[in-house]
Design a protein around this nucleic acid. Structure first.
Lengths: 344, 344
DNA sequence: AATAGGGACTTTACCGGTTCAGTAAGTGGT
DNA sequence: ACCACTTACTGAACCGGTAAAGTCCCTATT
């Protein structure tokens, strides 16, 4: 990547044109005191006429701030396109960054080790001013690594996973409990859950909460399946759950995202089971998708875009000297057409 | 964004530790000739021991290449989360960048003017080594701007929109024609199209192609509606198209993306029309979504991930000295459950 | 009138790399 | 034994900014 831009216009040219020194131009552009109003104007005029803007490289080399935030995602590339969650989350982050004239440096990685190396080189290379860590796991190697670097960061996940980093999280345990209570209140005794990758910290939290909530309301048949979040695995899991003979078959299924719930819906249809008559389905994340199906999908609704916004704001807080860990609004149950009391 | 990293280790430290000059370290790290094997090894060992990596800022200031590719997207942030297209496209781009140890600099912008300014400052600030331009319009202001900067770029869109830039595009006209011919062959005489934003260049191309293809096969009732690509507008458009009285009502609808097609499916259901009995629906972009609905959606299928891959490869070609404009594979029709001959 | 203080700039020393013109030692040919 | 050529490496200039220290001049104070 070489390629030469049009003859480079630098701070020197601007200074010359405005009849001042480089230092003066620097002062003007950083809104620092010590310049006469008239001079300032002359400098800006000169810069505008020459189409100059400060080189970020030079600036950051000289020890100024960096206007980029890093986000590495460790999931297979093809899955990302399908999950409404990430794009929605990212768009929330972006909307805050944009206000601050910041950009997002995005990178897909294949392993956490790779991500650790990446964050380190981004930070050491002064490319980013802070980072967002997603998909936190138990004993996540990124946490100590980022702490050691002293890089401002926000960990998206429960504080128990985030070590000393500032964390922003959704209270999955409470939400799962609410979901289970709701289904139980409708009369369901046999509830299954199609969960996400076990490696992820929040999967563990949800799994434990589901078990506990199920015990709490005295459910009899409880089963949980782990998947990779894809529609295909969601369909497969649903098929295996619903293939159980009559009275053992779950009458309600809770999904960890909406893609899998949509897949579950068509599996039910293909097996000749009616939703919500024979089986109730409850989605998670509630993107627009849930309102586009027949029946519409009840979901644990969650403002993912707003989540991204909150995380980005928090990161700016951390960079600016400190921000507290905090949960975002707990997902709320939005009943729609896919949940009802079990038949009989 | 200030915050100081752990005491900085620089090239000087590495040089001192290896007992050579800065220049030698630079040579080693850029794999340039003129160093003895033993010295090279000593330098790398020293660097590893100190955990050093070259500062990108300093490096790019000193005139080396940049390992970042820019991508600005000009659509409302909330819409992005819903469109499988972009995330899929991006994941394709990423997968190539990763091979080259490059990162993607992503930014949502609100207007093309803002994007022009952004690309300019990214380029002038030596932040990016090249860019990808998406959502090309007629007389797109970004094209001359990028050409003037002399920045390597790939325009995603028909060459007629791309000026002198290297373009990569899908042959929408042929695909639309194929879709129309297919529906016509099934016996449909009254076909509607729910298109995307009129401002986008490819919408114009599809609209024109649709008209021409319709004329070509002698259709009688043809109507096209423009939307913003969202499920809501897709639903609204479908509702208004299907509200027409009996014999005037279209018997087939072609959508510009899959989200709208899914929305159309539930509108049909809510209006008591059977798919494909009363009306056939044909989607575009064919994400996993199309296989998750009942009936499954026939679609103009398109390897979006692969499209991203191709675009990224082409960009590296451009940066490396030249690459030809070329189309990617034309979307192919994948018939599924939502299309059939009209009743009667 | 002498001095202190402050505003408005300029000077200069980096920041951490790259690059290129040297230079010193080694090799081979005659 | 001398010269021409490599090979391996050093030193210094430079990239485009920032920041701290320095200069100059003008006004207010004692």
């Amino acid at each position: 990547m070489t390629a030469s831009p049009t003859p480079r216009v630098t701070i020197k040219d601007v200074a010359a044109r405005a009849g001042v020194s480089k230092g003066a131009v620097s002062l003007a552009f950083n809104h620092k005191p010590g310049l006469a109003e008239a001079t300032r104007d002359r400098i800006f005029a000169a810069a505008r006429e020459l189409g100059w803007e400060p080189s970020v490289s030079a600036r950051s080399l000289a020890g100024a701030r960096v206007d980029v935030v890093g986000l590495a995602i460790c999931r297979p590339a093809r899955l990302l396109g399908l999950e409404p969650f990430y794009m929605d989350f990212i768009s929330g982050v972006e909307s805050v960054l944009t206000e601050h004239s910041c950009s997002l440096l995005l990178r897909l990685v294949r392993s956490l080790e790779e991500e650790v190396g990446l964050q380190e080189s981004w930070w050491k290379g002064r490319i980013i001013g802070g980072a967002i860590l997603v998909d936190l796991r138990a004993d996540d190697p990124r946490v100590p690594a980022v702490e050691r670097l002293g890089m401002p960061a926000v960990a998206v996940g429960h504080p128990s996973l985030a070590g000393g980093l500032t964390a922003v999280w959704t209270d999955d345990a409470t939400a799962v409990t609410e979901a289970v209570r709701y289904l139980s209140a409708l009369g369901h005794r046999r509830i299954a859950r199609v969960g996400g990758a076990v490696a992820l910290g929040h999967s563990g939290i949800r799994t434990a909460a589901f078990d506990e909530a199920a015990r709490g309301v005295g459910l009899v048949g409880v089963s949980q399946v782990a998947t990779d979040f894809s529609g295909d695995e969601g369909a497969r899991a649903t098929r295996s759950l619903l293939s159980v003979s009559g009275s053992e078959r779950p009458t309600a299924i809770l999904y960890d995202n909406d893609i899998m719930a949509v897949a579950g819906l068509s599996v039910a249809a293909e097996m000749g089971l009616s939703v919500p008559g024979d089986v109730s389905l409850l989605a998670w994340d509630d993107s627009q998708l849930c309102r586009l199906t027949r029946p519409t999908l009840s979901a644990m609704s969650h403002d993912v875009h707003g989540f991204g916004v909150d995380v980005a704001r928090t990161l700016f807080g951390v960079i600016g000297g400190g921000a507290e860990s905090h949960p975002v609004a707990t997902p709320v149950l939005v009943p729609r057409g896919s949940t009802a009391p079990p038949k009989g």
